[in-house]
Design a protein around this nucleic acid. Sequence first.
DNA 1: GCTTTCATGTGACATATATCACAAAGCTAT
DNA 2: ATAGCTTTGTGATATATGTCACATGAAAGC
Lengths: 190, 190
Amino acid sequence: MNKTEIKELVKSIFPHIENVALQHILSSANYIELAKGTELIRAGERHRYFYLILRGSVKTYYLKESKQICSWFAFENHIVATLTTIAGDKPSSETIELLEDSAFVQFETKSIKNLAESNLSASHFMTELITEHATFLEERLYLLQFMSSKERYYALIERAPEVLQKVSLTDIASFLGISRETLSRIRSLK
Amino acid sequence: MNKTEIKELVKSIFPHIENVALQHILSSANYIELAKGTELIRAGERHRYFYLILRGSVKTYYLKESKQICSWFAFENHIVATLTTIAGDKPSSETIELLEDSAFVQFETKSIKNLAESNLSASHFMTELITEHATFLEERLYLLQFMSSKERYYALIERAPEVLQKVSLTDIASFLGISRETLSRIRSLK
DNA sequence: GCTTTCATGTGACATATATCACAAAGCTAT
DNA sequence: ATAGCTTTGTGATATATGTCACATGAAAGC
């Protein structure tokens, strides 16, 4: 995948982005391929990059008493980042790990943030990125607070059926906030 | 409270804001006082304003089967808004209601959003506002997904003890995602 | 092809929480 | 002060979910 193709892709995902900003962002962008199990971002560490998934999938998780508790999964054409990395400059509290061999465009966070200091279009890009993330968080919060585990499971397979294809039931259960066994029983109901 | 005082207050809460942007934002700002029970923002409606609490408190809730389920409470010096109102221009899914007689600075959302289109400092202001909201959501999500109801209760009174002073246990229970009775039992444990 | 390992399903039981019913205490208005 | 309303506490019971143990089946490595 060459720079022109990357450019077209980023443009299609963020249609509002201006050419100057786009050029700047792409100057720090690289195409990379990584193997299943690789940790893109590791909890407790600062990170210089965020990613756009071209092919493959990742899971994001916290560690609680050395058990992985998933907070989300991402697939093709989605941005992979943590809020602490993008917005603050603090160590990530989550780990992001490849579920399968995958390909990404890697962006340098600093480069975009620097540009956003002086460039309006880049600042809008940041706002859009964070707004998208916040909207997603709000939806997930709503599900966790107001829906039963059954409802959350059905909402998940409706909203993101690809999760069921690519993610283990252990990870899905931790994401839904229930035990593996309970998920198994919900699934066997119909 | 006059414009100069409002200006100083907004400046102290958002120290990075530029003078041009500040002037523009303040031009649409008004001081208002409202009575307990007033709905600042009503679920299902679009809203032109967001607010800064000068004195008093509010609760934010969803309706589920005609029962109020609180999603947050806010007190002095905090911004009151919903993401759908600030970021999108969609009807709010939450209602925001005064817990007591309160005083606010009312800002016109459109005015700030318009300015952010062309003014860098205002755009940064928007980014900051939404980032703050997202950070808050992420923390709440973490508590809901990873902590037991006891832990969530203790986390709440540690992080925001004023909630206990001003909010009914019914509302706190709905916020924690548990029944009123369960909260009552947690409280009686020690 | 066989063995090992891992993911998933299921039963038995313990625990946490919800629900319903009612009592007690605190506020509010007259 | 009194009556009525709201908030909070608590007991009894039902339900949902977690935990532990083990079985089954699929995938991976030799």
